[in-house]
Design a protein around this nucleic acid. Structure first.
Lengths: 236, 236
DNA sequence: ACAAAAGTGTTGGAGATACACCCATGA
DNA sequence: TCATGGGTGTATCTCCAACACTTTTGT
């Protein structure tokens, strides 16, 4: 029988954030060694992730990774694919880091990937224990990442594009109160194409979980827009 | 650091087969012990699966499980979800089997699930080394299965329904040469609803990978239908 | 008054749906 | 000749895409 002992399972999170302007992804700087031999230039960026602990479910693990990094709880988190190539953590670029930090550098790690959506308006994700080492990077300026994380990231972007319209997600990325123009702008960024204002409004206005508020924008130098909110209860 | 040593990864396959009449799923009888203590009534049906071997990818593992069971190669196989509840293999119903066959009955197993589509016309999946212990069971007569395999099965059915039309799959389940009525019947079974014959034909006929043959059915007691085949090269 | 984004309806076209009869074959 | 499923076209409707002007606010 296959003893399977040199095999670990991790969860990696592709966390998308939106600041009203562009879509970012949360990356961490690979940890450095105290007085160690890894130089600055050898450190790579990576997706946040961790090994699955003994008694947690996969989604609990994803939520934990996120909580530890960003102090955010209760947000949209979806499993989208597992990556298990035996060589996925054995690239030349990752050799030194693994030798430095891993008891068994050749141990095979299978990872279950989740994507998450967080609003950069509501929270301050920098305020976490890891704050110094995390960065929000524009989705089209993602550098070369550790392991196979570029592949995981690309897969996440494709999945998000496929999910945002039919699954009515995307509200997660906005502040609690938002205007329809903000919602449209977000969709345009995710889908990477312009949408027609009137048609977009027709479509979203028939969603049950889009709740109009008796409230308007203030302090803008144009006609103030009506504010809306998102009722997660009303999702089918 | 989490040693992660009491953790294994398996692949489970939900193999759908179509015999021209109904949709079946491939189940195995849990192995019995030579002269053992597990009685017939304690044996359960399960989805085929196996632990991931040291140097194979997840999809290679899925293909291997299928090959070993059915002697079928090169068929449609898609990863759809990973299941990792720590208690997924710890139900009361599974206790005895695990104690009998596993070195560490409490070892946690995370499973990556694939679904596969095979034509029961082309192959004879019974002719395999496990032949005595496998069965094709009608998808709406699936009994209680071992572990969380009922949940995995239900998830696979849902995924197949969502994939069959937009992804132009389903051809995989038919014989190499098939009629449009057979294709329609298959879709009706998967989607569990009746489709309009003329509209269905209009839709499928504009697919590039549906190739009409200069050949007709024989031996049927009605007007013989034109045969078609599926060109996997032409898939977008 | 002006600048800036909010807000609003209609029309045309494409694609989906609904629907009924004749045809070719084997018994 | 009859029973059986094969094969075909059209009218309607619904949904999507394209498009331009008026409104409200702050400066």
């Amino acid at each position: 029988m296959n003893s399977n002992s040199q095999l670990g399972v991790s969860v990696d999170c592709v966390v998308f954030g939106y600041n009203g302007d562009s879509i970012k992804v949360l990356l961490i700087q690979q940890k450095t060694q105290d007085g160690g031999t890894i130089t600055e230039s050898e450190l790579q960026m990576a997706l946040p992730g961790d090994l699955v602990q003994a008694e947690e479910t996969l989604s609990q693990c994803a939520a934990r990774v996120l909580l530890e990094l960003t102090s955010i709880e209760g947000i949209f988190l979806k499993q989208f694919h597992s990556f298990g190539d035996p060589d996925r953590v054995r690239g030349v670029k990752d050799e030194k880091w693994l030798e430095t930090f891993r008891e068994f550098p050749n141990k095979r790690i299978i990872t279950v990937a989740y994507y998450a959506l967080v609003s950069l308006h509501e929270y301050n994700p920098e305020a976490s224990s890891f704050a110094g080492s995390i960065q929000w990077v524009d989705v089209d300026k993602v550098p070369e990442l550790a392991f196979d994380h570029n592949e995981i990231f690309r897969y996440a972007v494709t999945t998000l594009r496929q999910h945002i319209e039919p699954h009515h997600i995307g509200f997660e990325l906005l502040p609690k109160k938002f205007t329809l123009s903000q919602l449209q702008h977000l969709h345009e960024l995710v889908l990477d194409k312009k949408l027609d204002k009137r048609n977009f409004r027709k479509n979203v206005k028939r969603m049950d979980h889009l709740v109009p508020l008796e409230e308007k924008q203030t302090g803008v130098l144009h006609k103030p827009a009506q504010l809306f909110t998102f009722n997660p209860e009303a999702v089918i």
